[in-house]
Structure formats: structure tokens, C-alpha cells
Amino acid sequence: MEEKSIAGVNITLNEEGYLTDPEQWNEDVAKEIALEEEIELSDKHFEVLNYLREQFLAGESLSIRKVGNAGIVNIKELYQLFPGGPLKKSSRIAGIPKPASCV
């Protein structure tokens, strides 16, 4: 566990850098975490992030396939938006836990 100030907000992160409380998240926090992942967030990124948050807060489990079928981006575009680990990175930037999904 680590306390950190990101975009002026006090955030608690777990050992892998994921927010432990999704309520501490806002768009500026997302932008700063994204920069750590070397991603500059566009509107499209935010559409994906908001979808992930909605699904997570509704108690749904997430998979790449589900995000690809959500009508925002296809899977190839998802990989382009979040290179090198689309579901993991997008979840971290969206302020939700690391997805426990094998697909």
C-alpha cells in the first residue's frame, strides 16, 4: 500500500499501482496515471475508461472480449489505445482493480 498525491488528490495505491478506492479517481488522476504508462488520453480513451468504471461499479467482471463488444472500440483499437496490456493498463488508469480475467 502506498499513499501518493496524484493531480492534487491523495490516492491510495496497492503494490501494483492500482487504486484501492475507485472513488478517489477523477479525470485528472487518470491523465497522470496514464502519463506514467506513457499514454496521452484522448476522448476515445475516456470512453473506454468510463465504460470500464461503469461495468466495475455495476459488479460485472471484465474481459477484453467484453470491452471489444461494447461498441466503443474493437479489440485491435483497444490494443492501440493501451499498448502492451490493454485490460491491465486501462483498468489501472480507470482507477479500478486489476482484472482477474484470463481472457
Binding site: I64, R65, G68, I75, K76, Y79, P86
Partner: peptide
């Protein structure tokens, strides 16, 4: 297979 190739 498409998911795999989409990811490179």
C-alpha cells in the same frame, strides 16, 4: 484467433 492477432 482474431483476438490474438488483434493483439499482435
Amino acid at each position: 484467433l482474431e483476438m490474438i492477432t488483434a493483439g499482435g
